[in-house]
């Protein structure tokens, strides 16, 4: 096992290298000169041409844009490993600071989402599997299929029109994760204020994953139900409940645990569309805003961070798989 982990970690080095090279060159694909654009964005375009050219030259030097690509890459890499992503082109704040602000919000949103997804979908999946080919099974299969295919931005737009903003029902706030000045409220009111803001975005983030996971849980359970050890458990006289819960349910959980690993990347990156629609200042919205503002350091930082975290979570999910399922052994080959 330890040897396997070491081997995987070693294999991650070329992957990490590939991720950084790709990130770097994607940014270099960008048309236009970021230095020039910065000057124009700050309204300095009005100064005379010679001066503008000088400012561009200085900015280029300031950000090291006048050096050859491999030098720029080397410098960027060097700062990357120390988590120094430079300062944002948009507001001159350190990129890491902006990410530190956005990260907890996305984590809060997505941890809640994942918990809700798992808590609802596993029982639904299992109970539909217990009565296959019943009306309950067909009905829920149809419903899950519909939920699975509903575009979340459409649902978000509909929910916002009909349940927020006040044209129809004014039940929920339209944007952000808390009301203005909510920080000064007592903690319980603050928590309920945030919860109130999170209802609609969480609904939008939840239903798709819920449908996916419930279908997945159902097919896992169906597979387990026909196994020999289930018949053995019944034959030795266990109650149906014990057979289902102790022997069936626990075995059907194995693939669900490993799925956690593939859910993690989405959890870390946040949803660009949902965060944008609901104006939630998380990672997804930060990414979208920095694309709109051509804020290259932030785009590079977000891409690199998310890619590396995904790399780690893939490893984690593989290891988790071995922990949960003793039949899987790594490193013996």
């Amino acid at each position: 096992m330890l040897g396997y982990v070491a081997k995987r970690l070693l294999l991650m080095i070329p992957t990490f290298f590939g991720i950084t090279v790709l990130t770097f060159f994607i940014i270099k694909l960008a048309p236009g000169d970021p230095a020039l654009m910065r000057v124009q964005m700050q309204g300095m375009g009005k100064v005379d041409a010679q001066m503008a050219a000088q400012i561009v030259e200085e900015t280029r030097k300031l950000y090291g844009l006048d050096q050859p690509l491999y030098v720029q890459y080397g410098k960027w890499m060097k700062r990357l490993v120390t988590l120094d992503f430079g300062e944002s082109y948009a507001d001159h704040r350190p990129v890491i600071e902006k990410i530190k602000e956005a990260f907890p919000i996305t984590i809060l949103l997505n941890v809640l989402t994942i918990i809700i997804i798992y808590v609802i979908s596993i029982p639904v999946g299992i109970f539909t599997a217990l009565k296959p080919q019943s009306w309950w099974d067909y009905g829920s299969a149809l419903l899950l299929f519909i939920l699975y295919s509903l575009p979340s931005f459409w649902v978000a737009a509909l929910l916002m029109t009909y349940f927020a903003g006040g044209d129809y029902l004014n039940l929920f706030p339209i944007m952000g994760i808390s009301s203005f000045g909510a920080e000064s409220l007592p903690w319980y009111e603050y928590v309920s204020n945030v919860a109130w803001h999170l209802v609609l975005p969480i609904v939008c983030l939840t239903y798709g994953g819920f449908a996916f996971l419930a279908r997945f849980a159902r097919s896992n359970m169906l597979e387990v139900i026909h196994q020999d050890f289930m018949r053995t458990a019944r034959a030795k006289g266990l109650s149906e409940w014990a057979v289902i819960m102790r022997h069936g349910f626990r075995n059907s959980l194995v693939p669900l645990v490993s799925l956690m690993g593939s859910l993690l990347p989405a959890l870390l990156g946040g949803s660009v569309i949902i965060e944008q629609i609901f104006s939630i200042p998380g990672m997804g919205r930060l990414g979208f805003q920095s694309i709109l503002q051509r804020d290259y350091p932030t785009i590079m930082a977000l891409t690199a961070i998310e890619a590396v975290l995904t790399l780690l979570s893939i490893l984690l999910s593989d290891l988790l798989y071995a922990v949960v399922d003793p039949r899987i052994r790594y490193g013996d080959d």
Binding site: T15, G18, I19, L22, I26, L29, A30, P31, P265, G269, V272, I273, G284, G287, F288, I291, L292, R294, I299, L302, T303, E306, A307, V308, T310, L311, I314
Partner: peptide
């Protein structure tokens, strides 16, 4: 390497460029 990239964000970035 490709799996690690946040796909939608990557598509958005490339499209913007």
């Amino acid at each position: 390497i490709m799996i690690c990239f946040p796909t939608f964000f990557l598509i958005l970035t490339l499209l913007a460029f």
